[in-house]
Simulated scan of single mutants.
Amino acid sequence: MFAVYATAPSPDDPLAALEIGDRPEPEVPDGWVAVSVKAASLNMHDLWTLRGVGIKAERFPMILGCDGAGVLADGTEVVLHSVIGDPAWAGDETLDPTRTLLTEKHQGSFADTVIVPARNALPKPEGLSFAEAACMGTAWLTAYRMLFVKSGLRPGQTMLVQGASGGVSTALIELGKAAGLRVWVTGRTEEKRALATELGAHAVFESGARLPEKVDGVFETVGKATWSHSMRALKPGGIIVVSGSTSGPDPSADLQRLFFLQLRVVGSTMGTRDELADLLRFCDTAGIKPRIGAEMPFKQARDGFQQMLDGETAGKIVFTG
């Protein structure tokens, strides 16, 4: 079958490991289902896989793609949940020490067919296209968990999103606006800040700019480049929710500010199947549509990877069959 896959870990030149071609048809174990993929979205996780981060060398070649939407053999339209854990695990599956994502142990969604446990194929809302639904499983689910499960923020409070154009950031802007929060956003360029305004941000600022007032919560996916600004932006008792560190994993902790102002720093990773189901319902009932910055055929996947590598995103990058 046709697939977009990584041939081997390539830490310094990730696109050198990217291949577009044929891979074997998957076998479907008991309790799993085959999904005919109609659309799949690109995540930073796919670039990390190409670099060999979070995946053992013996797992290559590995079909890329955590997210997707498609059709089951009986015609049911579904959205993929990419967190795969121990079926016997009870509770939050993101805390299961044996959990894994598609592309870490199991082949991913950038292919004609992907197999997942039956519980990982959720019904697609009629109000979302396949391309829109394909954005939900990683970036949008991460944003949903950060905002509604981890932050504790209430409608009317002020949230700051560090970074204006990535998949998680654009999702946070749309979800925060729909939930009645005041959404502030930083962006490196005028184009990225304009995108945030278009998505519903109430105010936008240059990266590192002094804000008019302190905020109740900051949403961090950038890390080292924005960390000190995030710490300075918070009200006493405020919270930073962190789900990534694209600019580096070693921010200065600023411990004196942390304890003196009683700030809180909370980590957040992906989300649960139930949270994805809630996110899909919320988007459907509220009429929320994910921002798709670029949509292209799977055969042009290298172009999409290059855009993400260069930081030239304006929403989600989606591949279609």
Rank of each mutant, 00 (worst) to 15 (best):
E93C: 03
D13N: 13
A301S: 12
E220R: 05
R51P: 05
P117R: 11
A164S: 15
R182N: 12
A196E: 11
M136A: 14
L64S: 09
K299G: 15
D250G: 04
V33H: 02
G108R: 00
V161F: 04
E132V: 07
R59K: 15
W184V: 05
L160K: 08
A225V: 11
M1P: 09
T113G: 07
G271S: 03
V71T: 14
G65R: 04
V37P: 07
H81S: 03
Q157V: 06
D46F: 07
G166T: 11
T170E: 15
C283G: 14
R193C: 08
E25G: 06
E93Y: 02
S36M: 02
M231N: 02
A57C: 00
T113S: 06
D74W: 04
G31P: 01
E198H: 12
A17L: 05
H202L: 02
E25L: 13
P123R: 12
A118L: 11
T142S: 08
T98E: 05
M62D: 10
G237N: 03
T186E: 01
P24Y: 14
G304K: 00
R210F: 10
T285Q: 15
Q307Y: 09
G287V: 08
F260S: 08
A111R: 07
S207R: 15
P117D: 05
T189A: 15
I115L: 08
L122R: 13
M231H: 01
C66G: 10
L141D: 01
L263M: 09
M146G: 01
V71M: 15
T76M: 14
L141N: 03
D92L: 02
K56T: 03
S268C: 02
G137T: 01
W227S: 06
Q157C: 06
P87E: 06
Q307L: 13
E93M: 06
G163V: 07
I84K: 13
T189S: 15
W32L: 02
G244N: 08
Q300I: 00
V222S: 04
A233C: 10
F219V: 02
G70K: 10
A178N: 06
G180R: 11
F259I: 02
G85A: 14
A225H: 13
M146V: 00
R51E: 11
T320H: 10
F305P: 02
V37M: 13
P212Q: 08
L280E: 08
G152W: 12
S151K: 02
G217Q: 06
A209E: 08
A8S: 11
D284E: 12
L128T: 14
E104H: 05
P29F: 02
G52Y: 14
T158Y: 04
S245Q: 07
D30Y: 10
F110H: 12
L95K: 06
A57H: 05
M231R: 02
G321R: 13
L102F: 04
L261W: 11
R257S: 14
G176Q: 08
L101R: 02
E174M: 14
G321T: 13
S169G: 15
Q300K: 09
A253G: 11
E220M: 07
L42D: 04
L255C: 08
Y144M: 08
T142K: 07
E275K: 03
M296G: 04
G68V: 07
G244M: 10
L101T: 00
G311T: 06
E174Q: 15
G271T: 00
G166S: 12
T246M: 03
E275A: 06
G91S: 00
N43S: 08
Q256Y: 13
L258V: 03
E93L: 05
V161Y: 03
